[in-house]
C-alpha cells in the first residue's frame, strides 16, 4: 500500500507549530512532579510475585527441603546452579524418608537471570525466588552462594511435609498383621 504524504503548508514548513508544540510539552513536564526515587534512602515496595534472588528454604521443623533431584540444575537456562549429590556414602537427609539431600548447592548469582524456572520445576518446594534484588560482592567467588548461605537467606517455608506424611503412614502400617 502506498501512503500519500500530505504536502506541508507554509506554517508547517517553517516548523513553527512543531516548535510551539514541543515547547508546550517540555514546559509541562518541566513543571510536573518528579518521579525519581531517591534510592538508597527511599526504597521500593517489592510487589508480590516479584522474582528476586533464588534461595533455598527450610521446612517448619528447620530441615532442608531440597533432596538434590537436580531438576533446577537441569532447567536453569544460564547454568547458574551447581549441585553436588551426596553419593552412596553421603550424609542422609535430615528428614526421615527423604533419603538424600545435596552435599553442596551453589548458585552463581552473577549468572542467574532470575527467570524462576528453578522454583517452577522444584518438586519439593525447596527453592523460591525471594524479594532480594540488590546482590553485591567484591569478587566473583563471593557471588557464588553456597548451600549454607542459601539456606540462611531463604528462611522457612511451611508447606506440605510429604516425606513426614509418608513416614507416619508407614509407621501406622507396621502394626499391620502381615509383615515384610
Amino acid at each position: 500500500m502506498i501512503i500519500k504524504r500530505k504536502p506541508l503548508n507554509l506554517a508547517e514548513r517553517l516548523y513553527l507549530p512543531a516548535i510551539i508544540g514541543g515547547f508546550k510539552v517540555t514546559l509541562r513536564h518541566l513543571l510536573k512532579k518528579k518521579v525519581t526515587m531517591q534510592y538508597p534512602e527511599e526504597k521500593w515496595v517489592v510487589p508480590e510475585g516479584y522474582r528476586g534472588a533464588p534461595y533455598l528454604v527450610k521446612d517448619q521443623e528447620g530441615n532442608t527441603k531440597c533432596v538434590s533431584c537436580q531438576l533446577c540444575e537441569f532447567v536453569c537456562p544460564p547454568k547458574a546452579i551447581k549441585i553436588t549429590p551426596p553419593g552412596p556414602a553421603g550424609q542422609l537427609a535430615d528428614r526421615a524418608n527423604a533419603e538424600k539431600m545435596p552435599k553442596e548447592f551453589e548458585i552463581n548469582m552473577l549468572r542467574c537471570i532470575f527467570c524462576g524456572f528453578c522454583q517452577e520445576v522444584c518438586p519439593e518446594e525447596a527453592i523460591f525466588l525471594q524479594k532480594d534484588y540488590s546482590l553485591t560482592g567484591t569478587s566473583r567467588a563471593e557471588m557464588i552462594y553456597n548451600k549454607e548461605k542459601l539456606l540462611a537467606l531463604g528462611g522457612v517455608h511451611a508447606g506440605v511435609q510429604k516425606w513426614k506424611h509418608k513416614a507416619d503412614e508407614a509407621k501406622e502400617q507396621e502394626s499391620f498383621p502381615v509383615k515384610a
Binding site: T26, H29, L30, K32, K33, K34, V35, T36, Q38
Partner: peptide, 10 residues
C-alpha cells in the same frame, strides 16, 4: 538538570 526536569526526573 534541565534535561532531567523535562523528563520528569531530578
Amino acid at each position: 538538570r534541565l534535561c532531567a526536569w523535562i523528563q520528569d526526573r531530578i
